[in-house]
Each structure stands twice: as structure tokens, then as C-alpha cells.
């Protein structure tokens, strides 16, 4: 079976009114070489990629925007750098106007050292953005209760962190991620913390619907290779999850029958 055939077995994901074709969402931060970024994005197969909103400067111009347009990759603007509801809503409105999309990755952080989400502000921002017709995909802590609150506030997807942004520590609390995924009525996207492809597969096996990866690819020694690995890991994780894992057991269970065994050879003395 070719990779293409397997990929076709993985259905698209509905996020609010948006159809996510590929379950690997990519970030664009953490890499200075735009050409290398482009290669990595193409290798990842991603159809949705995040950008941040910043003041227009003649130096930065609109290079990322043009590149994503040229590659036909949909844009997921984030509200990175926002600390308050007010800043988050304004940033989202600017993103919608500039990029002509209702998608918004809601990211309200508590402080710049941990970059952990401020869930109180996040909850309020989510409610306001949903009211304003956005499709909020909400970065949050790995807490099942908070995930449900966000869903009820209008989140189109909840995006719990595996570990703090950029740490590459993997999924620190797999039990909570699994619990969030099992109880959510909206898609769950594992966001932040992934360091290697295997952890993307693990996220999918735990029941996440998609994975967002930035640093793990863009800061890898070979971004293109890690992009390809992560793409396959997401596919593998999805298929593994849907295949149904065996239950965990205390003791070994032989897979070869004991019947018909030859007589043991007498021990030589």
C-alpha cells in the first residue's frame, strides 16, 4: 500500500465551518531561512499554517503571507503576544481583516517566561470571539475541566498543550490529554511541547484529532526530514488509534500455542 493510499483513508476534520484536510497543522516561527521553511511546509503536507500579526515593517513586508498564498496553504492567524481579552479581540479583528479568514488561534498568555495560557482571559476572549463570528481554535492548559468550559464558551477546537511552548518535552500528562479527547464534542488539537515525531503519533493515539507543530520541525537540525517524519507520525497515530490497541496486561500472554510442543531435551550433566 502506498503512502498516498493510506493518507486517503484519513478523513478530513471539520472545525466549525472549516474543513481541515490534513491533520498536521504547522507553525512558521523559529526559522529564519524562508526557503528552508517552504521546503519543510511542503514536506509536512500541511494545509493549515499559523502566522502571527505584527506591525507592518518595510523590512518584513508580507513574505510569509505571499509564500503561503503561493503554496495554497490556508492561514491560521494567532494572537500570540496577547495578555488581555481586549488585545486578543483587537488582534483577531485585525487578522480577519488582513487575511480574510474567520479562523483564529486564540493564544492568551500569562507571562513571557512560561508562555503558559491565562485561562481566565482565554475563556472570556473565546466567548467574545465566538460571538463575533470567529472560528476560535483555543490554546489552553492540559486540564479537562477548562477544555469543557472553552467548548461551552464557543471554541470550535480546543488545543491543549503537551508541554510549554518550544520546550520539546513531549506530552507531560498523557492521561489528561486522553481525558480531554474522550470528553470533547469539538476537535482536540495537541498544541505545543512536541519535540519529535513519535510524540505526534502518541497525541493521535491518545485520541487527539490533529496536531500542531512548530519548533519541533523549524528548529530541528533537518527541518524537512522532521516535517516528513511528523506527517507520517500523525498518519500512523491516527491509524493506530482507529485500529484499536490491545488492552494492557499484568503478565505475558503467549502468541504461540503450547500444544504440540516437542518433549524437552533431558538436561546434560
Amino acid at each position: 500500500m502506498t503512502t498516498e493510499t493510506i493518507t486517503q483513508d484519513i478523513p478530513a476534520l471539520q472545525v466549525g465551518g472549516y474543513t481541515l484536510q490534513n491533520r498536521l497543522i504547522m507553525g512558521t516561527g523559529g526559522i529564519t531561512d524562508l526557503e528552508a521553511l517552504e521546503k519543510a511546509l511542503v514536506a509536512s503536507g500541511t494545509t493549515l499554517t499559523t502566522v502571527a500579526m505584527r506591525r507592518y515593517s518595510p523590512d518584513t513586508k508580507t513574505s510569509v503571507f505571499s509564500m503561503l498564498e503561493r503554496l495554497g496553504i490556508d492561514i491560521l492567524p494567532n494572537t500570540a503576544g496577547c495578555y488581555t481579552v481586549k488585545d486578543t479581540v483587537l488582534t483577531a479583528e485585525l487578522a480577519r481583516e488582513a487575511l480574510e479568514t474567520d479562523l483564529i488561534k486564540v493564544e492568551v498568555i500569562a507571562d513571557e517566561h512560561t508562555l503558559l495560557p491565562d485561562v481566565i482571559e482565554t475563556l472570556e476572549a473565546t466567548e467574545q470571539l465566538a460571538d463575533r463570528g470567529f472560528i476560535p481554535m483555543v490554546y489552553t492548559i492540559d486540564d479537562p475541566a477548562t477544555a469543557l468550559r472553552l467548548e461551552n464558551a464557543g471554541a470550535a477546537a480546543v488545543m491543549p498543550l503537551g508541554a510549554p511552548i518550544g520546550t520539546g518535552l513531549g506530552i507531560l500528562n498523557p492521561h489528561n490529554i486522553e481525558l480531554i479527547a474522550s470528553r470533547a464534542n469539538v476537535p482536540v488539537v495537541l498544541d505545543a511541547g512536541i519535540g519529535a515525531a513519535s510524540e505526534a503519533a502518541q497525541a493521535m493515539e491518545l485520541g487527539c484529532d490533529a496536531v500542531l507543530v512548530a519548533s519541533a520541525v523549524t528548529r530541528a537540525q533537518k527541518p524537512t526530514a522532521m516535517a516528513q517524519a511528523t506527517r507520517r507520525a500523525v498518519e500512523a497515530g491516527y491509524l493506530s488509534r482507529s485500529a484499536g490497541r490491545i488492552p494492557r496486561r499484568e503478565h505475558a500472554q503467549a502468541s504461540s500455542a503450547f500444544e504440540g510442543l516437542i518433549n524437552p531435551v533431558e538436561e546434560l550433566t
Binding site: G29, T50, A52, R55, N78, A95
Partner: peptide, 10 residues
Amino acid sequence: LEIVTAVQGG
């Protein structure tokens, strides 16, 4: 005036 655009991030 604030004039913003998309930059690398996330």
C-alpha cells in the same frame, strides 16, 4: 494608526 500584517509565528 496601526497597520499590521502576517509574520512568521506560532
